[in-house]
Amino acid sequence: MDMNVIANDNVRIIRLSGRFDAFETPATNKWFETNVSATESRIVVDLSGVNFLDSAALASLVKGMKRCREHGGDLVLCNFQQSVRIIFELTGLNKAFKITDNEEAALKAF
């Protein structure tokens, strides 16, 4: 999986691509632990390049989301492929996250 982080005003956009599973979550968990703070708590995760995520990946995104909310911000997800959308719907996680169709909408969701 590739991970690219882009700073956009006071929002960080993380673009992920490839397979997001337990082998990749140590990196994303570490990123959330290191970078999310009171001043950096607004994050958009663009999953347009992710075709699969497992329960460890879901747990990692939840970790990031909870950490952002603890610091007064939020983690917004966008650009789901169909397979990813199904996983979020089956697990009820679409009710826990703010999810938008694209990055532009995600930036307006805070």
């Binding site: 879901l58 939840v62 989301m65 089956l90 697990t91 009820g92 996680l93 009710k95 826990a96």
Partner: peptide
């Protein structure tokens, strides 16, 4: 398939 109507435990403080 029967979809879950709430996220896993540990995501939200209250189960809804």
């Amino acid at each position: 398939l029967l979809e879950a109507d709430a996220p896993p435990l540990g995501v939200m403080p209250n189960y809804d």
